[in-house]
Nucleic acid binder design. Structure first.
Length: 509
RNA sequence: GGUCCUAUCGUCUAGGGGUUAGGACAUCUCCCUUUCACGGAGGAAACAGGGGUUCAAUUCCCCUUAGGACUACCA
């Protein structure tokens, strides 16, 4: 029987989920579903000082909004609960002890001051990268150099200590990455990383290896920033005796800022005026940050966009539903190089998916948006307006501003009006206004068009000469959906009034 | 500085020893339309540089350059 695929998304609850994290979650989800496996959510909250209330709920809500909720994990439950590392605290200690007993780890009693002093001393001596390693540990206060008696004494006395991994002096460590192939690192460039902190909590390194093993994770799919510590993790699997079941690794290319280089940050996003968080986020006492959801991005658009940032199916198809993504996804097709975050493309995807939305859905959105502005319309009318507007917007929320003229007579007229204005336009507008007031309310857009054309023909004019000025008179804007439809919707009386008022204005200027 | 990763149009990318180096976004032109948008047609636009290997390198190897990540008792 083939082992079930199990992957995890393991964010740390230190704030809102970054969009890069969202993509990592998405790839994990896609891979899990493609393989008929499980997608787990584990909360990595071993740093109690960085814990932010609400962050965990935020993560769950964000994944739910996108439709990539985990199968097991924090907030869902499952066979390996608890899924919050702070609640798994006792388990780590046992494995750390196992490592010490086997001689792969040791106690270190150095104070932060002593560590600083060591680094400073080494810096002065010209060592560019001071490390607690095979060489320097000989000069520090740890169970490798201190007399056994003193170690026991300190331990019994409750002295603060950490547990460090004992990195071998000379050993080639190999990591096989699905995306990058073999990565070789010499152990001499690694340092004796802390495994257990003095507060009794494990560090990420120990916790993620222990949990991934206990949770039977088969593939670790995470950001490239973890690649440098992957050799350490490989060593841990080996020292813990779990080499045979060690998960496979896939280190994802980073999401880069749109201009220049470097990891995409919130600052970059703010500068360019787009979100980095899926949902809005408001830390206690701080300012609210808007998210993709509030900005008006559709989940399917964001997902499609994100999926293509670093991955490509190898075909010409660019539009993929979540189900199609699952079907097409493979880790092998993930690229190696970082991808710049181009919000333009995201907008295009959004526009695309928006156009695919039902008028009824769009109409409902427009109706509530209007209500917020104190304007009431019927759902039918909102739907009709939405159908006219949807081809010319990127976000649903733009409908209110774009279609303002459906509800309000224009307060000002676009400057194009004065250029296009003429005695003929004035005459036609007035004649049209007169006609409009005399016809029945249920007159169709087609008939209204016919009436206008008749007037224009009688004057021996071309429609193009007068239509744009008339449009501006009625809507205030030089562009928009079919004018006759607009007139039909706002009503012939209203249109007539707007025309008269507009003509007066235009002739004055 | 050290370790590791990376390098095809402006951007996301396909491709791969011999191709007119393909697509999408953005951009430009034209068509459609009363306008804008949508849609349609077309254009401009790329293999970082230098060495190898080879009959042949954008593709394989090395170096350079550029960029990035990591370098905490943070994840």
């Amino acid at each position: 029987m083939i082992k079930e695929v199990r992957v995890r998304f393991a964010p740390s609850p230190t704030g809102a989920l970054h969009i890069g994290g969202v993509r990592t979650a998405l790839y994990n989800y896609l891979f899990a579903k493609k393989s008929n496996g499980k997608f787990l959510l584990r909360i990595e909250d071993t740093d109690q000082t960085r814990y932010v209330p609400g962050a965990e709920e935020y993560i769950l809500e964000a994944l739910a909004w996108l439709g990539i909720s985990p199968d097991e994990g924090q907030g869902i439950g499952g066979p390996d609960a608890p899924y919050r590392q702070s609640e798994r605290k006792p388990m780590y200690k046992a494995y750390a002890q196992q490592l010490i007993d086997a001689g792969f780890a040791y106690y270190a009693f150095d104070t932060p001051e002593e560590l600083d002093a060591m680094r400073e001393r080494l810096n002065k001596a010209g060592v560019p990268n001071p490390q607690y390693n095979a060489i320097t540990r000989a000069t520090m206060k740890n169970s490798l150099v201190l007399p056994q008696e003193e170690v026991k004494q300190r331990l019994d006395a409750g002295d603060a200590y950490v547990i460090r991994i004992k990195i071998p002096r000379k050993e080639e460590v190999r990591v096989n990455d699905i995306i990058r192939g073999w990565v070789l690192v010499h152990s001499s460039s690694l340092d004796d990383k802390v495994l257990m902190k003095s507060d009794g909590m494990p560090t990420y390194h120990l916790a993620n290896v222990v949990d991934d093993h206990l949770m039977r994770i088969t593939h670790v799919i995470r950001g490239e920033e973890w690649l440098p510590s992957a050799p350490l993790h490989v060593l841990l699997y080996k020292y813990l005796g779990w080499e045979d079941t060690m998960p496979e690794f896939a280190h994802l290319p980073l999401l880069l800022k749109p201009d220049g280089n470097g990891k995409l940050s919130k600052r970059d996003a703010d500068m360019h005026g787009f979100p980095v968080f899926p949902l809005q986020w408001q830390p206690a006492g701080a300012e609210k940050t808007i998210g993709f959801r509030e900005e008006g991005y559709l989940p399917e658009a964001l997902l499609n966009f994100l999926a293509f940032l670093g991955w490509n199916p190898g075909t010409q198809q660019e539009i993929f539903s979540l189900t199609e993504l699952v079907e097409a996804f493979t880790l092998e097709k993930i690229g190696k190089a970082g991808a710049k975050f181009d919000i333009n493309k995201a907008n295009w995807y959004n526009q695309h998916y928006l156009r695919g939305m039902e008028n009824s859905a769009l109409g409902a959105i427009l109706k509530t948006d209007l209500e917020k502005k104190g304007i009431n319309t019927s759902l039918e009318s909102a739907q009709e307006i939405a159908s006219l507007l949807k081809e010319r917007i990127t976000f649903a929320k733009e409908m209110v501003a774009e279609g303002e003229y459906f509800f309000k007579s224009p307060k000002e007229y676009d400057a194009v009006l004065s250029q296009k204005w003429s005695a003929e336009a004035s005459e036609v507008s007035l004649a049209f206004a007169d006609k409009l007031i005399s016809i029945a309310t249920e007159t169709s857009a087609e008939e209204i068009k016919h009436i206008l054309h008749e007037i224009v023909e009688n004057q021996k004019l071309k429609i193009g000469k007068v239509l744009q000025p008339i449009r501006i008179l009625i809507t205030g804007k030089p562009a928009g959906p079919d004018l006759m439809q607009i007139i039909k919707i706002i009503g012939t009386n209203e249109a007539s009034e707007r025309l008269k008022k507009g003509v007066e204005f235009a002739n004055r200027v």
